[in-house]
Design a binder for these strands. Structure first.
Length: 433
RNA sequence: GUGCCUGUAGCUCAAUGGCAGAGCGCCUGAUUGUGGAUCUGGAAGUUGUGGGUUCGAGCCCCAUCAGGCACCCCA
């Protein structure tokens, strides 16, 4: 017999988990469509060369394989690179700026851990073809609305800009090549603390004076305005950092005008983020209930699509991690969590009543009530038990007595009461619950 | 990819190298028009898998698969 087992890091999602996952997806999708985003779906498999050269060090995590035709293929690593391919390939058919959302699995050959899988589902939303700070702000507004709609308490979105980090590195006397290690070190600030980051910087050969300078810049805290003002003062000599600060100002202004609560975001100069294609704004949303790793992340990548299209197409976007959202919501007890899809369970009293029960089930379904019908007749106790175990709220009985009266017994399995209603009123009664 | 921990019934877990167990769940009956509570009886296992040591292995050793934690990185 074949192995009854999952591939490492790849999971089955049983009905109860799927119901919550679908709720999350629907909630986020509705928010995106409210902003006019359009759906896109691309294949899970791409030519390996499409994915290569875009991800930096992360490339070693790409799943690669060869098909029967000896083509070098790869499972997509995210939904951003495929988006870039699509934008280039259908340039004539897409009216820019284009707001697009996508949902599906991506694959990374990492060591699995809690909240981290080799097959994981993301919901992406991107605005293609606009460099306006309004686009950046709209993405942040979208994520804020989504997390609020899902009922997350106390989440915070950290905002930063790649050229602020770059400016910190440059004004500390570091060249671009050693900057990568610095980004990673300062990104760990929350985990290691100031001393830990300092040790890490010194270990990688950063001069003590430069390391102190970096630490001081990275620890700037306060309201977005305070942080940006302090950064402007200290990075004023760096033209690109100054432009980045101006850009973040514009984004934050727009967030205010869009009605995003100032309590939902902060400017955090230490936020780095790994993906190498980001060029401007970077952000991630965190919740105190998930100390390691973020719920979602994103940023502006103005050059990636140009690698396919041959001309710069500025783009900003984000990716929700469905698996993490699900795990955190599960732990916090957020969201509705029905045990099953059915609301009503129609019992079958006996062979003579089967036709009437089937007709009742049909009527309920036509009226919009999700309905399960018993596949066994007789032994009502057993049928009630099945309904109860499945988590169906109402059990309906159509026995000889009810049939002669033209009524249906509606039994509430959650409370325990039951009442007999005229058959014509049953659909309305169940919909009213 | 590196290091550490774990893997026994559907689930949670016991079992000095010496007869594989409990609780919950499941099935059955008390109840042939009523689930949940209580009680009756019952089924359930190649101890993740493959080797090795031993008179004898769930327990010790090796390998492998899977899960968790820490690195690394990210959703």
């Amino acid at each position: 017999m074949a192995k009854v087992q999952n591939i490492k890091g790849m999971r089955d999602h049983l009905p109860q988990a799927m119901l919550l996952r679908q709720y999350i997806l629907e909630t986020v999708r509705r928010v995106a469509e409210r902003h006019g985003f359009e759906p896109l779906q691309t294949p899970v498999v791409e030519y390996a060369e499409v994915l290569e050269g875009k991800l930096g060090d992360d490339e070693k995590l790409i799943y690669r394989f060869t098909d029967h035709g000896e083509r070098g293929l790869a499972l997509r690593y995210d939904q951003t690179v495929p988006l870039a391919r699509v934008v280039a390939q259908y340039a004539g058919q897409l009216a820019l700026p284009w707001r697009r959302y996508a949902y599906g699995p991506s694959y990374r050959g990492e060591r699995p851990a809690r909240g981290r899988y080799r097959e994981f589902y993301q919901f992406d939303a991107d605005i293609v073809g606009s460099g306006s700070p309004l686009a950046d702000a709209e993405i942040v507004a979208l994520l804020t609305e989504s997390l609020e709609a899902l009922g997350f308490p106390g989440f915070t979105t950290l905002l930063n800009h790649r050229q602020i980090i770059g400016g910190i590195a440059r004004t500390s006397g570091l060249d671009e090549t050693s900057a990568g290690g610095v980004y990673r070190a300062i990104d760990k600030f929350d985990k290691l603390g100031a001393d830990g980051v300092l040790a890490e910087l010194l270990r990688m050969g950063v001069a003590p004076a430069a390391a102190d300078q970096i630490l001081a810049l990275v620890q700037i805290d306060g309201t977005p305005g305070e942080v940006l003002a302090a950064l402007a003062e200290r990075l004023g000599a760096d033209a690109r950092a100054t432009a980045a600060i101006t850009n973040l100002w514009a984004i934050i202004d727009a967030l205010g005008q869009m009605g995003v609560s100032p309590e939902r975001y902060r400017v955090a100069p230490r936020l780095a983020r790994g993906l190498s294609y980001y060029t401007g704004l970077v952000f991630e949303a965190n919740t105190p209930h998930w100390p390691e790793g973020s719920l979602l992340g994103g940023g502006r990548y103005d050059e990636l699509i140009g690698q396919f299209a041959g001309r710069p197409i500025p783009t900003v976007g984000l990716a929700f991690g469905l698996d993490r959202l699900h795990d955190v919501m599960e732990e916090l007890g957020l969201g509705p969590r029905p045990a099953t899809t059915a609301v009503a369970y129609v019992t079958v009293f006996g062979p003579e009543q089967a036709a009437a029960s089937l007709a009742l089930a049909r009527e309920l379904r036509a009226g919009g009530v999700n309905t399960l019908i018993s596949l066994e007749t007789g032994a009502l106790g057993k049928q009630f038990k099945e309904a109860d175990r499945k988590g169906v709220r109402f059990a309906l009985v159509l026995g000889p007595d009810e049939l002669t009266r033209g009524e249906v017994v509606v039994k509430d399995l959650r409370g325990g009461g039951q009442r007999s209603l005229p058959q014509a009123e049953v659909v309305a009664a169940l919909l009213a619950e």
